[in-house]
């Protein structure tokens, strides 16, 4: 409840012209946005771009937010949709050879301080990227973001049965992949 009140105050202040309130909201949620986008895309630069896109959407649309759901759920839904759209666009660009595949960017070293954890992230990211998008999405929502099937169903507008089936296949594939690591 306290979280909701803080968010409400920040949104209200931002709408009333306090730009620093938006900065505080961005700082509060930017890591969550980044990690969801990063798990979906498996790439720091893509995640970085999605963070910027989501912040821009928030900046432009925050005035219309009515607190019918929590601000986090709203931001989470925007981040997820943006990530999927970004991946679809990237696929089209790569099909049309618009992206320079040869110049793949290497992630800068100063994003994650803990090297051991960075290696584990690399391992799980590779496993996630091997999953079809729908399975990857449900796996991330369920296990990293700890959402219930009911919550995922509300966000995605899909039946719980279909989500469970996607998750079952994702879990099975990831377990097999990590066994070989």
């Amino acid at each position: 409840m306290a979280e909701l009140n803080i968010d409400f105050e920040l949104v209200k202040n931002f709408i009333n012209g306090d730009e620093s309130a938006f900065n505080r909201l961005a700082v509060k949620y930017q890591e969550k946005i980044y990690w969801h986008a990063r798990r979906m895309t498996g790439d720091h630069y893509d995640a970085d771009e999605i963070v910027q896109e989501v912040l821009m959407v928030l900046y432009n649309k925050l005035k219309t937010f009515e607190f019918k759901s929590s601000l986090y759920t709203w931001i989470y839904t925007i981040t997820n949709t943006r990530s999927i759209n970004y991946l679809k666009k990237k696929k089209v660009r790569s099909f049309l050879s618009l992206d320079d595949i040869k110049n793949e960017k290497v992630e800068p070293k100063n994003i994650i301080d803990d090297l051991e954890k960075a290696q584990k992230i690399d391992m799980i990211e590779k496993a996630l990227q091997s999953l079809p998008l729908k399975q990857r999405e449900v796996f991330i929502m369920r296990n990293f973001d700890e959402l219930s099937y009911e919550e995922i169903s509300r966000i995605k507008g899909k039946s719980i049965g279909a989500l469970k089936a996607n998750h079952f296949h994702a879990l099975h594939k990831i377990k097999e992949l990590l066994k070989n690591e």
């Binding site: 961005a26 963070v51 990293f144």
Partner: peptide, 28 residues
């Protein structure tokens, strides 16, 4: 399942470096 969930939880709440975090809002 437990092994997998251990990896998930170890990679779940990792803080981004201070430099990068600060650069996000500047870039925005």
């Amino acid at each position: 399942y437990k092994k997998l969930m251990n990896i998930v939880s170890e990679t779940k709440n990792i803080n981004l470096s201070k430099d990068y975090s600060e650069s996000i809002i500047t870039e925005f």
